[in-house]
Design a protein around this nucleic acid. Structure first.
Lengths: 322, 322
DNA sequence: GTGAAAGCGCTAACAT
DNA sequence: ATGTTAGCGCTTTCAC
């Protein structure tokens, strides 16, 4: 029977038919556990996500699923339910071992904070916190993108530019800050500590940070937020503090979840999607023992300007239709 | 060693320490496959989703993850990558067998079109297409909700009310249509075929249907769309056909993804979330052999009015902050 | 072309 | 308290 299912060696057509008939009649399906344990190739890819509910994770999952759909692999996602549970960070390696030990052919780990993994099967990381990880990974060009964003604002004539940072312990946030600082330096503008506020990539932190910057004695004429969520918060802050919303205040979000589409740029959702997609392709290459062109695949980040309230209406239309 | 890991029988403290030390040193993790095959209880719940990328699936997953985080179970999601692959519908039973055979303690199946499942472990379905499925399930009060929505519009004085249907083959869409028809009948208003257009829950179908309804010789004064996506399409249609958007046209979306929050109602995202959450709790009861109060858990659906463009801006703010 | 048997990594039951 | 062993359901190998 095993021979029929795995269509390996010669089986008499008559026996074959009889077995197939019985299988369908009984609704039999081979046990994943037993099968995985015995055979090398499982046609299954494992995925470890920090939190399945975040838009961030979702977009990456979209790309992963797209690549999976095109491939012969199925996907097995393992989660314990949110990053809020204690010790999840330390459990990352545990999850990897769990799946890699004998269930999947390869794994994708998203937004991990580990800088090293021990695994029987190949691993590809998407957007790891570590800038120089010890495993194949998909990364964004955070530094270059930040420089680009700053040059845009500098090109508009801005000289006092505020910065809302992302979660400081994460590599991407550090790279973006460094881009901010280096761009200013290149333009011969001193970096003022007052103009840099710490955030955590959330709208709320953008809001708080925005209020802080706008309340300065000598407020910035432009604000560069480390991601779109914070940029949104800055806009809210501007609106609340009674200012006639933007048009008079340049706000840049590093990522943008919707508006960029109208400008013909890659939106962050497409961006994350593509990251997931590339990760699977990279992983499949590794599984098939094909050589990797580059250990770290770097995707160019793009920026988007938020400047008018009209954009919000357009965003609404877009988001709703999605 | 097995005894140490499963902290079952008595082990000498000294031996215990030695083993734990070795385990951590070697980074050993027990094989999920082997373990699952041998023991009854795996502390793992399986999830079969039609498509991990849809907002619909995502919201349900949120609730599921929330419940999982609170429980002692982990979650294993199985997907082949999108409903677009051929034969996925028929493969539903296959996935169920695959996981249920020996990997998980119970399963949640979302938006399934099967009316029967054979499984070794307990199954709970979320929002099955079948209105009277042969398995425990979480359902929405689609019929009652539609009556409620219609009564709202009738209460505003509307007598010619259009209807944008959902995917006709799906039970929930049928129930909503029946609610529309019955409410009209109760009010002594004849059901006009012209006022009912078929859709598929998408914004595009709402758009097309809206244009069709608005182009009627005697157009409706209100439109009831079977879900929020289509309601959004109707709004777009109204705007495009040069009408001063709403205020003068009542559009109701049966589900609402964001606005309802401002009105203090349950939003569809909360609604789906809750469905997923309840499903896990129901399943855990089944796994623990506890009796089920009701085989079908019915969640009250709530409606929301879309009437002004201002709402869009508010939506944008909400969605962005999310 | 088919039957038989070994063994994958575990857990549970039984033996010491 | 610890050592030993029989399988769980498969795939693979080796006989026939």
């Amino acid at each position: 029977m095993s021979r029929v299912l795995n269509r390996k060696v010669d089986v008499a057509p008559e026996t074959q038919d009889r077995i197939v008939e019985t299988i369908t009649r009984l609704g039999y399906t081979s046990s994943l556990a037993a099968r995985s344990m015995r055979s090398r190739r499982k046609n299954l890819i494992g995925l470890v996500l920090p939190d399945v509910g975040f838009p961030y994770s979702i977009e990456i999952m979209r790309g992963i699923e797209r690549a999976i759909a095109e491939s012969s692999f199925d996907l097995l996602l393992y989660t314990t339910g949110g990053i809020h549970k204690v010790g999840v960070m330390t459990r990352e390696q545990e999850y990897v071992s769990l799946l890699s030990s004998s269930l999947v052919d390869g794994m994708v780990v998203v937004a991990t904070s580990a800088s090293e993994f021990s695994s029987v099967v190949p691993i590809v990381a998407v957007d790891p916190h570590d800038v120089t990880p010890g495993y194949p990974a998909i990364q964004a060009t955070n530094y270059e993108g930040a420089i680009e964003a700053m040059n845009y604002l500098l090109g508009l004539g801005h000289r006092r530019i505020g910065f809302i940072q992302g979660r400081p312990e994460i590599g991407s946030a550090q790279s973006r800050l460094k881009g901010y600082q280096d761009a200013l330096q290149s333009a011969g503008i001193p970096v003022e500590d007052d103009l840099v506020v710490t955030g955590d990539f959330s709208t709320k932190s953008g809001h708080t940070g925005g209020l802080k910057l706008l309340a300065l004695k000598n407020p910035p004429t432009a604000i560069f937020a480390a991601n779109d969520q914070s940029a949104m918060g800055v806009l809210q802050a501007a609106e609340e503090s009674g200012m006639m919303v933007p048009e008079d205040l340049s706000v840049i979000g590093f990522d943008n979840i919707s508006e960029a589409k109208h400008l013909g740029l890659t939106t962050i959702d497409q961006f994350l999607d593509e990251m997931g997609y590339q990760a699977i392709h990279m992983l499949i290459k590794l599984i098939n023992d094909e050589p990797l062109v580059e250990q770290i695949y770097r995707m160019p980040t793009q920026l988007v300007v938020r400047s008018s309230c009209r954009a919000l209406v357009r965003n609404a239309m877009y988001l709703q239709s999605f």
